[in-house]
């Protein structure tokens, strides 16, 4: 039972990162039907932006909380700038082109950003990330179930990010405009909504959340790596599809589901299909089962046919 609960905690921590990154995929897909494969790199850039802020911009001895806030801002600036540039110069010129064109472009942007960072940080990868939140500080969650401070932080910031985004989209004027654009872009324009601006907003919000996640990941693992965006990006995209791509709550649910399935598969899947080697296989088994019975994902709603 302890093992089960500890694994559940492990799964929630893993899922928090997936969910937070998945939000970026799902928002952009929901609004422009673009699978922005370079979103994983936006997450990576958030981590590197935070690292750069810490190592280059912050004077030694900056109080930890202030350093964390500034690192988050630094990460966001880098992530958001990259997202704005890719939207403007890579994707916008292709709007209205066949769907394959922006998809291939997204892959190209992804490789471009990875190599850019690799060349910018030419030393050995991965790069050590400052351990500002002590990983040996453990919080007990009942009988020998524990979570370390940076892992708890990962979950807390992820939940804050998710709630903030969901509130923004449901309550704010711009959030409503995002929903309208997702459901029917032409009609949204008839309401006076500048859909170009809304698309940019979706990229910016996704990048901001990815930056949060990139910083949390750096603190949790103590490294950042130009390749870290690829695997997380694939998993987060899977989470978005699992939850119902385009659906914000779905991305969150999909993220946690995926994290927990991976962890439980590592622990409990029967031999010889157990262990870390099979966790991804099990994750995709779950994805396929969900899509067989609910083709639009766990929370995906089939948007009423457009006239």
């Amino acid at each position: 039972m302890q093992t089960f609960l500890q694994q559940l905690v492990n799964g929630v921590v893993l899922g928090a990162t997936y969910g937070l990154v998945a939000l970026g995929y799902t928002m952009v897909y929901g609004i422009v039907q673009l699978i922005n494969f370079a979103h994983g790199e936006i997450y990576m850039l958030g981590g590197f932006g935070a690292l750069f802020t810490y190592t280059v911009l912050l004077p030694g001895g900056t109080p930890v909380v202030l350093a964390l806030v500034l690192m988050l801002l630094g990460g966001m600036v880098v992530s958001i700038t990259a997202a704005l540039l890719m939207e403007r110069f890579a994707y916008r010129p292709l709007r209205g082109a066949p769907r394959l064109a922006p998809l291939i472009t997204a892959l190209g942007v992804s490789i471009f950003l990875q190599e850019l960072v690799r060349n910018f940080y030419p030393a050995k990868s991965p790069r050590p990330f400052p351990q500002l939140v002590d990983p040996s500080h453990q919080f007990s969650l009942g009988a020998s179930v524990e979570i370390s401070a940076p892992r708890l932080l990962t979950v807390v910031v992820a939940v804050i990010g998710m709630v903030a985004l969901s509130t923004f989209v449901r309550r704010s004027r711009t959030g409503r405009a995002m929903q309208a654009t997702a459901q029917d872009p032409d009609t949204a324009r008839l309401m006076g909504i500048d859909t170009d601006r809304i698309i940019v907003t979706a990229f910016v919000l996704g990048a901001a959340l990815a930056a949060v996640s990139g910083l949390a990941s750096g603190l949790q693992f103590g490294t950042v790596d130009p390749r870290m965006g690829f695997l997380t990006g694939v998993k987060a995209f899977t989470a978005a599809v699992l939850g119902g791509i385009g659906n914000i709550s779905g991305a969150v649910l999909g993220g946690f589901t995926l994290g927990i399935v991976e962890v439980m598969a590592t622990q409990y899947a029967p031999d010889p299909f157990s262990g870390g080697a099979w966790k991804d296989a099990w994750a995709f088994v779950v994805l396929i089962l969900v899509l067989v019975f609910r083709p639009s994902g766990l929370l995906g709603e089939r948007v009423a046919a457009r006239a």
Partner: peptide
Amino acid sequence: ETINPGDKDFSAIVTK
């Protein structure tokens, strides 16, 4: 036990 190159979160394997 096996892991994937590039993985970062090994908490599940550690617990196991």
